[in-house]
């Protein structure tokens, strides 16, 4: 292999640019405002663990984490319950109707949910679910459906026809085919969709802000954290809160590094 000094230097330069704000965040989380201002990149003189406690109490992160977990879990169960049967049906038929449905989901995949933010707020009000966690639980699966259905369909198409025929000869109906043949074979797809959409649900911000709102009982972590900003923001506390909120995602990532990378690339590799 020939040496490629320029590419190497540039790739590490960018890595440094990526890492610098994350490092700054981590050290700031243990400092006072004054220390953040005067010695921005130094390690903290005295490690101020109270920042984490203050952030937890002030933004009521405990309740917020609970809300985020609850919304994400219900939404992912609902997403799979809707997308898996649909993908099964689309993988097993090759009619004009099936192609129209696939086309509809492909178009839906391209439209960012933000486009319809305000009408969605109106919908939440009309359903009497404005300011509740329940609306997010119902809404998030809809925004996740196009990609989930398309990805799962691709995975289910890999089920060998011979296997389906022999199972059908044994008298297996749709339910048994789905649970005993298709889902086990498409399991990597189900795992990918689950990881990908859980991350999306966990990280969702604007809809959570405008529909679920900022009331401490129902707000998610993404909404709770920015409430730490004020005219006299304690940057150390803000950084500590950010670390607390980002940490679960990083822990999950380090536990299943490869699976997660596969899932997230699968989401965009879909062609």
């Amino acid at each position: 292999m020939r040496k490629r000094p320029l590419a190497t230097v540039l790739s590490w330069l960018y890595a440094l640019i990526l890492a610098a704000p994350l490092y700054y965040l981590a050290v700031s989380a243990l400092k006072t405002n004054i220390e953040i201002f005067t010695r921005p990149f130094a390690l903290p003189a005295a490690w101020l663990w109270e920042n984490f406690h203050t952030a937890w109490e002030t933004a009521r992160l405990g309740q917020a984490l609970l809300n985020s977990v609850l919304i994400s879990l219900v939404a992912i169960v609902l997403t799979l319950a809707l997308a898996v049967p649909a993908a099964y049906a689309l993988a097993r038929t090759d009619s004009r109707a099936a192609r129209v449905i696939t086309g509809a989901f492909s178009a839906g995949f391209l439209i960012p949910p933000f486009a319809a933010l305000i009408p969605t707020v109106v919908l939440a009000i009309n359903m009497g679910l404005f300011g509740t966690r329940e609306f997010q639980m119902l809404f998030l699966p809809a925004s996740a459906l196009p990609l989930s259905v398309l990805l799962l369909t691709q995975f289910m198409r890999t089920v060998p026809a011979a296997l389906v025929e022999s199972a059908a000869l044994d008298g297996a109906g749709h339910w048994r085919l789905l649970t005993r043949v298709f889902v086990p074979i498409a399991r990597p797809g189900v795992v990918s969709v689950t990881i990908l959409q859980l991350l999306t649900f966990w990280n969702e911000y604007l809809f959570a802000l405008t529909i679920t709102g900022t009331s401490p009982d129902v707000r998610t972590v993404q909404v709770a954290l920015p409430t730490l900003i004020s005219d006299a923001t304690n940057l150390g506390v803000l950084a500590a809160g950010t670390v607390l909120t980002v940490l679960p995602v990083y822990v999950a990532y380090s536990l299943m590094n490869r699976r997660m990378q596969e899932a997230l690339t699968a989401g965009a590799v879909k062609e």
Binding site: L82, A83, P85, A86, Y88, A89, L90, R92, T93, S95, A97, A98, I101, A104, F105, G108, I111, P113, A116, P119, T120, V122, L123, L138, F139, P141, A142, S143, L145, P146, V149, H174
Partner: peptide, 21 residues
């Protein structure tokens, strides 16, 4: 094509929460 009925719940969901708005 009867199995395509299984796509109806997801289509309804998508219509109500995404296409409608």
């Amino acid at each position: 094509p009867r199995v395509l009925w299984l796509t109806v719940p997801s289509l309804v969901w998508f219509a109500v929460f995404s296409v409608g708005p």
